[in-house]
């Protein structure tokens, strides 16, 4: 059935169990603090494998999360283990070479904290549906230039991906890439950067003209967005989970 104008424009299409922007922000803050003060290696591992991974799968961002883990955290973890387990061979505050096991354990702890932190941040931002994006950011109290920057950046991400894809497509279409081998694709990177940079500069100038001409920046501040709605079940679930994590870690710290 063709969606009618009124049907689509009158209501926001939300994902099931999408938490409200306030609950999302509060849960993310609690989870981040809880992770930063956590010093239980096994618990961090359990939180990542048992809670974050299933949530990233349910939120449809498992692929992005695994990419983050393998591309970014993999080399960082290797470097941390190398430095604390072998080169310094001791955790911070202890003499160099005094305890390679504890150094290794410290390296693992930092790597796991980064993994959980990354997962929490990805879960917090990447699962916001495009329909809820501006409402969420405004609900978090962002106004003025900050709102413009965040809205522009969040809208720019998909556009940048799209443009890179289009430029690569154009190179294929003009026969400038003989075949699709990995090395050939890798060689396209420098050629990708020039048109992208030129596009960014040209777009920045032309768009800022349009913003100024149509008074869009002022409109963004007063945009009649939908209220900070969300699923109450989803909100309660995420807030409960994050605050339990925070309270448990505070309790563990206090009890020593």
């Amino acid at each position: 059935m063709k969606p009618s104008f009124e049907m689509v424009f009158s209501g926001v299409q939300m994902r099931r169990y999408e938490p409200s922007p306030r609950a999302r922000g509060a849960a993310a803050a609690a989870a981040i603090v809880g992770t930063l003060i956590s010093n239980d290696l096994h618990l961090l591992l359990l939180a990542w494998l048992g809670i974050l991974l299933p949530l990233t799968i349910a939120g449809g961002i498992a692929r992005q999360h695994m990419k983050f883990v393998t591309v970014f955290l993999g080399p960082v973890t290797a470097a941390l283990l190398l430095v604390w387990g072998w080169m310094v061979a001791a955790p911070p505050g202890m003499p160099v070479g005094s305890s390679p096991e504890e150094g290794l354990s410290f390296g693992c702890m930092v790597a796991l904290r980064l993994t959980v932190l990354g997962g929490v941040i990805q879960l917090c931002f990447l699962t916001i549906s495009p329909e809820q994006l501006i409402a969420t950011v405004r609900c978090w109290g962002l106004r003025g230039e900050g709102l413009v920057i965040v809205a522009g950046t969040l809208a720019l991400g998909p556009e940048l991906r799209l443009r890179s894809d289009q430029v690569l497509t154009a190179r294929y279409a003009r026969g400038l890439v003989p075949n699709r081998s990995f090395s050939n694709r890798l060689r396209q990177l420098p050629f990708l950067l020039r048109p992208l940079l030129a596009w960014v500069l040209r777009s920045a100038i032309q768009r800022s003209e349009i913003w100024h001409q149509r008074g869009l920046l002022a409109r963004l501040q007063t945009l009649p967005v939908e209220p900070c709605a969300g699923s109450s079940t989803g909100s309660a679930f995420f807030v409960f989970l994050a605050f339990s994590w925070l309270v448990y870690n505070i309790a563990t710290r206090v009890s020593g």
């Binding site: 809205a151 809208a155 556009e159 777009s203 768009r207 149509r214 869009l216 409109r219 967005v225």
Partner: peptide, 30 residues
Amino acid sequence: PRLAYVGPELYNSISGLAPTVRHELQLHLV
């Protein structure tokens, strides 16, 4: 107060501030 130019480079006539078509329209509607 209000003037509008839509040029041949259409993607640059789109604000780049809105994540969806719906938001793009809402952003412009007075």
